[in-house]
Design a protein around this nucleic acid. Structure first.
Lengths: 191, 191
DNA sequence: CCAAGAAATGAATGGTGATTCAATTCTTGG
DNA sequence: CCAAGAATTGAATCACCATTCATTTCTTGG
């Protein structure tokens, strides 16, 4: 019984995530999510006090997945430079594989309450990068700089490069190589 | 009479721009715009078929003003490096002076129809920068690179650095200096 | 097998804000 | 000065969805 409860809550979150990844936030009416989850509209409200809470959780879940992937990839590397490269490759690779989801997570207009989660998402990436950059600076691998600022700028560059062209319909693997060069230069990685 | 027509249309656009700059898109109900413009709600529809059309024009106007300022600043410089610096200084300086407007133009959730204008705005900045970067590459001032990609990334970095911290409430003039360093390095300006 | 309570249902409600339009007020050519 | 037509008004309408809740359907301890 308790299990059934948990399961249906999960199905709702999954359904929302699925619609988000296929049709974006615009397609995510409560009715649509409920239908896809195989529950009644009203049942969504047994699990979440409001739509915004559901989507805050959806965004949190999806974001965490991204952050985890990126963190794992970076952890496998040894130097600050390599870690930053791993972050770029992973972030961009995943975005290219799920462009609709990337768009939704990064820029699609959403409820202000959900927008807050987006900020968390972006800042989490930035914080991760800031740590690596600070390490690089401390170890003499990178020139002195404000890791907060540069990591923020890097996240912005990554996001724009991924979703800006999305509208124009172009962003291939060659984009990733270009971004790595751009960002390594920006951080002052010796060539 | 014709003049009165034009004048009231302009007052409506100005009113919308004013509210946008003070309270963001969220504060821009048609009723609020009409009141500020000193006309009846319904009169807005004599000039624009729909709210989205009004705001497409508002965004176009505001964007053009930004682009013009940036273009003018860049034109006063002689080298690609100096032009890029002028773009950053102007873009960031204006954003810091009108943070609410910058937020609205760059990232605040809006109608999808208006979102399209935002894309135009970002791409216009990118196109401008791409031209300078291409010149710099052609003249040997900058190393080889894809100007489309690097200009897009620069616009993303600028936007994120301006409005990301906006939520956190911090972004001062020192941010601009940091961004110039970051972007010059990213483009491969020799130090 | 049987209540008693929990969970699920989905049609009805409610709030928001864009859009419409019948009534009214201006313009202007004669 | 006077219609005829254009412009303006703003209250009423409409559409869209999130949210609610009376009703129905399960679950389970006895």
């Amino acid at each position: 019984m308790r299990a059934r409860l948990t399961a249906s809550r999960e199905r709702i979150v999954d359904a929302a995530l699925g619609i988000l990844a296929e049709h974006g936030y615009a397609g995510c009416s409560v009715a649509a999510v409920a239908e896809r989850a195989g529950v009644a509209t009203g049942s969504v409200y047994r699990h979440f006090p409001a739509k915004a809470d559901l989507f805050a959780e959806v965004f949190r879940t999806a974001s965490q997945r991204e952050i985890d992937a990126v963190t794992r990839a970076a952890a496998a590397e040894g130097t600050a430079t390599a870690r930053v490269r791993a972050v770029i490759e992973t972030f961009a690779g995943r975005a290219l594989r799920s462009p609709r989801l990337a768009y939704a997570l990064l820029v699609e207009p959403v409820d202000p309450a959900v927008e807050a989660q987006r900020l968390v998402f972006r800042r989490a990436h930035a914080a991760l990068l800031a740590g690596y950059i600070a390490d690089g600076v401390a170890g003499g691998e990178l020139p002195p700089q404000d890791p907060e600022l540069t990591s923020t700028a890097v996240v912005g560059a990554l996001a724009e490069a991924m979703v800006g062209p999305l509208a124009a319909g172009v962003a291939g693997p060659e984009t990733i190589a270009g971004l790595i060069t751009f960002i390594h230069r920006a951080l002052g990685v010796p060539s």
